[in-house]
Nucleic acid binder design. Sequence first.
DNA 1: CCCTTGCGTTACGGTTTTGTGACGGTTGCG
DNA 2: CGCAACCGTCACAAAACCGTAACGCAAGGG
Lengths: 226, 226
Amino acid sequence: MSTQTVLIVEDEKDIRELLAFNCRREGFFVIEADNGYQAAALAAEKEPDVILLDLMLPGMDGLSVCKILQRSAATAAIPVIMLTAKGEEIDRIVGLEVGASDYVVKPFSTREVMLRIKSVLKRTAPGPGPNSLDCGAVRLDTTRHAAFVDDAEIALTLTEFRLLEDLLRHAGKVRTREQLLDSVWGYSFEGYARTVDTHIRRLRSKLGNAADTVETVRGMGYRAKG
Amino acid sequence: MSTQTVLIVEDEKDIRELLAFNCRREGFFVIEADNGYQAAALAAEKEPDVILLDLMLPGMDGLSVCKILQRSAATAAIPVIMLTAKGEEIDRIVGLEVGASDYVVKPFSTREVMLRIKSVLKRTAPGPGPNSLDCGAVRLDTTRHAAFVDDAEIALTLTEFRLLEDLLRHAGKVRTREQLLDSVWGYSFEGYARTVDTHIRRLRSKLGNAADTVETVRGMGYRAKG
DNA sequence: CCCTTGCGTTACGGTTTTGTGACGGTTGCG
DNA sequence: CGCAACCGTCACAAAACCGTAACGCAAGGG
């Protein structure tokens, strides 16, 4: 495995250097930024393997940086670990409106941060999956977060996109509602399994004449035609 | 799939019983321990499929239990899910280093714990048998939940599919109605044995010219042509 | 050859599962 | 603050599925 690059975005110099020191000791190549603009620019230029991103930054904050990274195909796939002080913000990040892969709450132990970096890299390394999923008339570009039917782009909401992505990643195989809830909504979702049905329905209606790409397997769940 | 065993290690009786209740409801066999010594002993003796381990225990704590389990070849491979109280961040990370497969932070939702158990077991468990069953012109793909006759897909209902799956998994051997009821309908089914006949018939009719794949053994039950 | 037993077949009512439309709550944005 | 988008839930309708019963045929033993 070649050397991997970590981008550390943190305005407090002491913390930044502490993190950088530890990262280097673990064998990573480190680049640093102390504000959001610089972070976005460096991420685009260097395309690091993982980004440590402080939520509270002067000027543009971490969430905005995240959103910018999401928009660009080159940087959308880079995993982001959020550093956050506030407990309340966690929900929003974990809800992953912004696409963060993980988060660490301040005050953190450097050891914890290192472990999370490794964990995220391990998760990403063995192929982050193809960034283009095809299934008949339906195509999904995961880096652009865009969906197409017969090469015409259709607008999907976040949940619909994730749902379709999960089905397509397991094309042909049955996915139970439980599995879909785990994968799309997350373990901590305390909801109703029928919620899946509703989103399947919305998804189908947006798929138009390709609606039958998503098949019902009665008594089991749903399956993408494969 | 045979029943899987969960070892629950938790000193607070209420929590332990809550977890045990939910595990049993999910079909697991449950053994319990309220301290570390007992946990280590039980793990070595019973070799459960997964261990739910509270971090804070009287006497020997969860970490020590983990380390002990790691040392013995028989128990090292057993996945451990840590239960930690909030604010023990460092500890829970160390727990992961020590070989825990996952962790849940208290207060947890039982649903989340159940999902993590299943997830861990899925990760660990070797494939639940082949996912493609062949028998002459008939083929069954269990992951897709699809059946084929002469490579043409046919639509089976859930019961029909399970019935055919059971027969094919025991291809050539006679399956009595009782065995089929247990396997396909579940032990708790209090029904009429002749129900099997009806489903066999429906199955045969859908199998078309491969109907004779399912043979009748008079006085005994049914058998897939082997 | 006849009788008994077991199985195949058909039909049907009830139950379960899924589709569908609608509603209220939340969030982000202007 | 109002608006729009999105999401989770609910209630009802539709469809699929299932279990049971009844009847007749076939098999096998005496």
